[in-house]
């Protein structure tokens, strides 16, 4: 007689998937933000999350990144169930495995650019000199090493966003979450940021979850999912 295999409450995730979500539901009071959304991404893949304002794109990103806990559903990262982890566990995961870029860089205004980029490493316990050396390498890659000693208030929007991208990559994350990363930039700067972000991510085999409503930005992705009324649609599996 064969032994009884364990039955998991989590539906199986296709092999090679780094981050996957199933049937996510989230409501804020009477407002439904996610209504059965699904998502999956492989290492080195750039997936655009598109949809109109208020469709649930950002809530989906926040759930995937472990910032917000869904009311129900499953999120699996590298074989681990995110919804079963406590706050400290998710926090540690975010610091070590995930990187973040937001619409407005959200750099710490009191720190210089190189200190800002080094910050995630410092929070993980890396000594200052070592952290700043790594930070400088990323500033060079993002073509903004010349502003390393300046504070965020002294650099342009495009430069600040490149510094933010450098900060998101400095810990060698497996997943970068980018929420409208070029939303505050003109098209030339926006495109350069997208080129540098996707080149850097591909070269390190990091996956990028790219929330955007701009088609020209989404064109830097490998595929897109569309979120509408809290439901997601994976266009690769439809067309």
């Amino acid at each position: 007689m064969t032994s009884v295999t364990s039955v998991s409450a989590t539906p199986s995730v296709p092999a090679g998937t780094l981050l996957a979500a199933r049937d996510l539901r989230k409501a804020y009071g009477p407002t439904t933000a996610l209504d059965g959304a699904a998502f999956s991404i492989h290492p080195g893949e750039v997936v655009a999350v598109m949809g109109p304002s208020g469709s649930g794109k950002s809530t989906l990103l926040h759930c995937l990144a472990g910032i917000v806990t869904p009311d129900s559903g499953s999120i699996t990262y590298n074989g681990r169930e995110l919804t079963a982890m406590n706050d400290a566990g998710r926090s540690a995961l975010r610091r070590s495995e995930f990187g973040f870029v937001f619409q407005f860089g959200q750099l710490v205004p009191e720190l210089t650019c190189v200190e800002n980029v080094a910050l995630p490493l410092r929070l993980n316990g890396t000594p200052r000199k070592e952290a700043e050396r790594a930070a400088l390498t990323w500033l060079e890659r993002l073509e903004v090493d010349d502003v390393r000693k300046k504070r965020p208030g002294e650099v342009s929007g495009g430069q600040g966003q490149r510094v933010a991208v450098a900060r998101s990559l400095v810990t060698g994350p497996r997943v970068v979450f980018a929420d409208e990363p070029t939303g505050a930039l003109d098209s030339l700067n926006g495109e350069r940021v997208m080129e540098l972000l996707t080149d850097a991510a591909r070269s390190t085999n990091a996956a990028v979850v790219l929330v955007t409503h701009e088609a020209r930005v989404a064109a830097y992705s490998d595929r897109e999912i569309v979120v509408r009324d809290g439901k997601s649609r994976d266009m690769e599996r439809v067309v």
Partner: peptide
Amino acid sequence: AADILDTQRSEHLRGMRILTDRKR
């Protein structure tokens, strides 16, 4: 009808990806 628009968006994005890649 939303389905038609989604399918068309996807087709347009496919074209835009090819152009973006050529541009790079």
